[in-house]
């Protein structure tokens, strides 16, 4: 295949960016999208040019590092996958592919397609945990039976990889899907119940402070989420938040 690429190039956070055109040839349908970009980069290096900077690491869809807006969709045209799992068989000879970084005020561009997502870390630091220290003296794991449905729902919420596709997709750049996944996981489990009120209040407060927008229930985040995190989590977080703001002393 021969493909035309339009890729966002930006030197640094304070520079203005632009879309630049490249062509890649002899692309095999069996290679992954990132391998196609590897080849472009090798070509650029061999021409003495600077390669396109992009985030990637595990290349098996679990680390959450890769983050590309491909033809107007987070992680490209397929559902339930990350950019690194997208394969070139999804495209055809002569296609033009536009590749941009996540765009959100809370995710400033560092370079080219690389953005700064440390706002997510700061939200977790505000309350995305159970306050239990390491010790050899916690109760036996089976002393706390957990209803399988709750455990399964908590697991589904916990599979969020923190990639930020939800934010990039949302017209309001809302982080509600990300935050609600963590709030839900811990609210569904007995271990998380003790701190559930402070947790949701603190995490939401931090989320707002970081400059993420609000949720207007379009559901686009759920559609683009590579881990299919459900919109139900946002509903659950809203309930948690309402309960906490009515009854909490904070």
């Amino acid at each position: 295949m021969k493909l035309n690429l339009r890729i966002w190039r930006q030197d640094g956070p304070n520079d203005s960016g632009r879309l630049e055109n490249y062509t890649v040839e002899n692309v095999s349908p069996d290679e992954s999208f990132l391998e196609m970009l590897d080849e472009l980069n090798e070509k650029l290096v061999s021409e003495g040019k600077e390669p396109v900077a992009f985030d990637h690491d595990c290349r098996e869809g679990i680390c959450g590092m890769c983050s590309m807006f491909i033809n107007g969709e987070a992680h490209g045209p397929d559902r339930a996958i990350t950019t690194c799992q997208l394969h070139m068989r999804r495209f055809k000879d002569g296609d033009t592919i536009t590749i941009e970084p996540w765009r959100a005020a809370a995710f400033p561009v560092i370079k080219d397609l690389v953005v700064d997502r440390t706002a997510f870390d700061r939200i977790i630091q505000a309350g995305g945990f159970v306050s239990v220290n390491t010790s050899g003296n916690t109760i036996d794991a089976n002393a706390l039976p957990i209803n399988k449905a709750d455990a399964d729902n908590a697991f589904d919420a916990a599979t969020c990889i923190g990639c930020g596709a939800c934010v990039a997709t949302c017209k309001n750049s809302s982080a509600m899907l990300f935050v609600s996944a963590k709030v839900s996981q811990l609210a569904l489990l007995p271990q998380g119940k003790v701190e559930r009120q402070e947790r949701v209040l603190n995490m939401v407060e931090k989320m707002d402070e970081e400059g993420f927008g609000n949720c207007s229930n379009t559901g686009a985040c759920e559609v683009e989420c590579p881990k299919e995190i459900s919109l139900d989590n946002i509903a659950r977080m809203n309930r948690e938040y309402l309960k906490a703001s009515l009854s909490s002393e904070k």
């Binding site: 239990v132 010790s135 109760i139 039976p145 209803n147 399964d152 996981q185 271990q191």
Partner: peptide, 21 residues
């Protein structure tokens, strides 16, 4: 101890219908 610690942190291990690991 690792399993106890992780469960206390809220790690959602697979469970059986009786609620045990």
């Amino acid at each position: 101890n690792i399993i106890d610690q992780c469960v206390a942190q809220g790690v959602p291990f697979a469970r059986e219908y009786g609620g045990l690991l």
